[in-house]
Design a protein around this nucleic acid. Structure first.
Lengths: 197, 197
DNA sequence: ATGAAACATGAATCATTATTCATGTGTCAT
DNA sequence: ATGACACATGAATAATGATTCATGTTTCAT
């Protein structure tokens, strides 16, 4: 059922596992978890169906793996983008842009994280909570340093994450030719100075 | 397959249909679309399985119905809350509060709309797009009237919707005893004046 | 070079569930 | 009050697709 499958021990095994994982990203990202069958995944990977179960205990397990991968990548990308900023407001703008570019590049992983809400709620929560924790402490530090207007860092973190998520969906995923810079500029203006005239 | 089922013609029929719809909201809201079986739904409704197909052509059809219902209710609730506001900023605050209260009251419908992204993407898009259209025109009018700082109304609408959605999930759905007023106050402060000191 | 451990295969199994249907019972316009 | 239509039943059907397994083939430490 959920015996955590051991990692492969040969070079070939490592490659096969990666092939299958990548195929799963493609297929599940396109068709969704339920519609994507193991047969679809192994066909995409170019292996027999049984091979799947050498590397993953279940369809759920490979899915969780994809969510974890997505978490690692997103955090890395955003952290790197933000680390070069001179102040916190600049970091907000850079982070948003990096995130939206990532969504444009890997829309499938974006889809997968959202579907995790239903397929693997714990993984979903962990993904956002771990992101939010880091985000929150950055915001709190910046506010304490007077770089931001005072305010609740936790609520801000989630509000800003939600904004980014939905902008990514609407203006990147749904758009044939996303204009990321325009979205970043407008959204950042809102984040920076608000709606009040 | 998808012959749109005719509406019931007797009083009993109308009641049964409503029973089944309500049971579906409960069961699908709790277990999710895939895990919720027709048997679960009819058991909850207290009818035989076959009865389901007198009123709905398929599991997908009843799901779409629930998404549409959610759309009607959300629009009604938010529109009503907003219509009493004296200015647009006040409307933002009132609308957010009304939305979060609704989420607290009907978490199942909230879940269902999010799952529509995978089960019925058209319905999902229609839900948010129709909401966004109205929201956008309100924001545009308010900006033109000088009640808001100038800015792109479409991007603003989606950014604010995204914020509300995620705050609802994190601070209402995930929280045993949501403190909606606190969330509204903090989020509104962000919306009003932004992060800049 | 070689054999034990790893890996690969794909057809068969097995469980789950949406949907149908043949046979009733209830409703309500006349 | 009654018959035509609407509704109700739940067991049978049928499709789907995850998982297993018996039988090979490949790898690599020795």
């Amino acid at each position: 059922m959920s015996t955590p499958t051991a990692l492969p021990k040969t070079k070939r095994g490592v490659e096969r596992r990666a092939q299958i994982l990548s195929a799963a990203e493609t297929v599940i990202g396109e068709k969704g978890f339920t519609a994507a069958s193991i047969a679809d995944i192994t066909r995409e990977a170019g292996t027999a169906q049984g091979t799947f179960y050498i590397y993953f205990a279940s369809k759920e397990e490979i899915f969780r793996e994809l969510v974890l991968e997505m978490g690692r990548i997103t955090r890395t990308i955003v952290t790197r983008a933000v680390s070069e900023a001179s102040d916190r407001l600049q970091a907000e703008q850079d982070g948003l842009r990096a995130f939206l570019r990532f969504v444009a590049k890997r829309p499938s992983l974006y889809q997968i994280v959202e579907e995790a809400r239903f397929v693997d709620p714990d993984a979903y929560r962990a993904y956002f909570t771990s992101f939010a924790k880091a985000y929150e402490s950055q915001l709190a530090a910046a506010a304490a340093a007077g770089e931001l207007r005072p305010g609740d860092a936790e609520i801000r973190a989630w509000a800003l994450m939600g904004m980014a998520k939905t902008l990514g969906e609407r203006f990147v995923i749904w758009e044939a030719e996303p204009d990321i810079d325009r979205v970043v500029d407008e959204a950042f203006a809102l984040i920076r100075t608000g709606l009040e005239p």
